[in-house]
Design a protein around this nucleic acid. Structure first.
Lengths: 220, 220
DNA sequence: CCGTATTTGTCCGTATGTATG
DNA sequence: ACATACATACGGACAAATACG
């Protein structure tokens, strides 16, 4: 039992990890006693971690009934993509004028790895790399608050993975869009970068959900 | 001690209320025992509420040292405005094509009340009305996820109120921008509404902090 | 519908770490 | 540096609510 960090924090990270790996899926019930036993703690840190994750939009606590991994409706899924498109657009606009050559190099290297992974390894390799690429893009935008909220959004999107994910040649299209983003950033054109990043998110939504647009799914 | 709702939830709302009213200001220390005594509970619900509010970005918990209302640096303040500008822009773009005449009427009534309050009552009346107006705008945009994250942002901005707030004729300028937003919405022009809402946030930042732009303050 | 088992919500005690004289 | 006082982190117990047979 490590000191120096709180048990609550460790429990919180552990649950988040299980959500990211898919070990915990939407709708699953979390039992306080079981978790406390498996993680070798009392129930107090477990409950505190629950409260934090509830606030982060990952858990739903029903009084006297239990704690569940949140389920994301189709409408909310469309909302998430719509908001994330806005965030990526913001990030692209902020990043384009300030990106360094070294950063462009770093992003290119990440894309090389990503494309290699998509042919070799399965989704379990590709998925975290893809998320890491986009996370790094937003981080480079230089707004820590934006980055923090973006991460919260991405965490929520883990709850809707494994839906219509990974149609046949979808990764090919995604790679092309990634390269478009890098090209726009390389020219330091804010509007082009913003547009490329926004469009990539919206295209990803269409690939995953096979609907026309996030706008219509929300308005629907 | 009410039943039917959790004590944790009540404590959380109470602390949030104290932050919004300014009763709790940035840097203030929260004592578990004192709070538990005043709110007539044990320390457990207090601690759970702390964890939720920490995740929301309002509190900072230092292990074995205490819990404090978060302090927002100048850089983070600029970041908050920059992100909020992006949100309002999104909201305006989404709302313009879908706003109803009844909703326009409702917003006009809110502005009438807001302008009346700015001449009569003090900041304590004006401030919540102003926040309510913007909150309603985002709510009308029809994306509940966007609205939820927006509220989290606004909550954080309470931590930096009472800085350079309310220069002389600043409310007059604000009123003008509000009317511009309504005009743009009335014409159902997405770009105009997005731009009007974005600009209003950025102008508000300049009025409150007397600097040229949020971009420069972040890039600084 | 009732009784039992299980789980949660809350309370309180104790150990540990921090601040202060 | 030491001892004291204090606040927090965690653990465990009890009561209430829910689930189940």
């Amino acid at each position: 039992m490590l000191r120096s960090v709180t048990l609550t924090g460790l429990v919180q990270e552990e649950i988040l990890r299980r959500i990211k790996t898919g070990e915990l899926q939407a709708g699953a019930k979390l039992n306080e006693n079981d978790l406390a036993e498996h993680l070798q703690t009392s129930r107090s840190p477990i409950r505190e971690a629950f409260r934090a994750l509830e606030e982060a939009g990952l858990l739903r606590m029903e009084k006297n009934r239990g704690v569940f991994i949140r389920e994301i409706s189709d409408t909310e899924a469309a909302e998430l993509y719509q908001v994330r498109a806005g965030f990526d657009e913001m990030a692209g606009r902020l990043l384009a004028p300030r990106i360094t050559d070294a950063q462009l190099q770093e992003l290119r290297a990440m894309l090389d790895q990503l494309e290699a992974s998509s042919s070799k390894g399965g989704v379990n390799h590709y998925f975290p790399l893809n998320i890491g690429f986009h996370d790094r893009l937003v981080e480079m935008a230089g707004n820590a608050t934006l980055h923090g909220i973006y991460r919260q959004l991405v965490n929520r999107m883990h709850l809707l993975r494994r839906r219509g994910f990974s149609a046949a040649g979808s990764s090919q299209a995604s790679h092309g869009e990634h390269r478009l983003i890098l090209e726009a950033l390389a020219t330091r054109d804010p509007d082009a970068a913003a547009q490329a990043m926004r469009q990539h998110v919206l295209s990803g939504y269409q690939r995953a959900f096979s609907v026309r647009s996030a706008d219509e799914a929300v308005a629907g």
